[in-house]
Amino acid sequence: MLPALPRKYHAASIWLLYAAGFVPAAYGFWLGATGRLPGNPVKEFEHLLGLWALRFLVATLAITPLRDLLGINWIRYRRALGLLAFWYVLMHFLTYMVLDQYLNFSAILVDIVRRPFITIGMGAFVMLIPLALTSNNWSIRRLGPRWVKLHKLVYIIAAAGALHFAMSVKVVGLEPWTYIALVAVLLAYRPIRPMLRGRKRRPPEPALRESERSA
């Protein structure tokens, strides 16, 4: 098993994750802005942001099974991963809106209304907004059990994200299938989780601390 990170480094490691998380976007932007992205730089950057958003969503959903099945407790990174997903979706949308469509709002509106893959992607973005706004301790205290309920939206968001990717391409190749499979496995784990935990409990395990409870 992994050696546990000393508690005094926990906060720093979370900030490090935020910093590292923005590297792909910053690097991609630098490449594009300086003419180093080949072919269709705006699309390349737009796709890079979308892919990383999906990766962070998958990572967010992987935290719980990682702890249940492998005993790795990275729950302290879950908020950062979820928020990174939100920022990447926001940047993905802004890139589409500003760099790709030149703020042509009528064209953007037609896209959102008429093209199902964009409607679905937009829906996922809208659903992410309340989650990002309530990703703080104050909201968790304030909303109590409703917070847990609200944040179950991430399941729909992740499914919508993978679908948005698969529906956007001309041929659904290995890459979109990989994300569909990852999200499907991570979502399927949720309903079977109580059964797995029930079986595991036979030799009783200590109750989770309040701070470690998760949806």
Partner: peptide, 24 residues
């Protein structure tokens, strides 16, 4: 006539302007 998944009204000229050039 749009493609069902995108508009065909405009196009991105490859190899012009990078991020900020008027390439649409």
């Amino acid at each position: 006539v749009d493609h069902p998944r995108w508009s065909q009204a405009s196009e991105n000229r490859i190899g012009e302007g990078g991020f900020f050039g008027a390439n649409r």
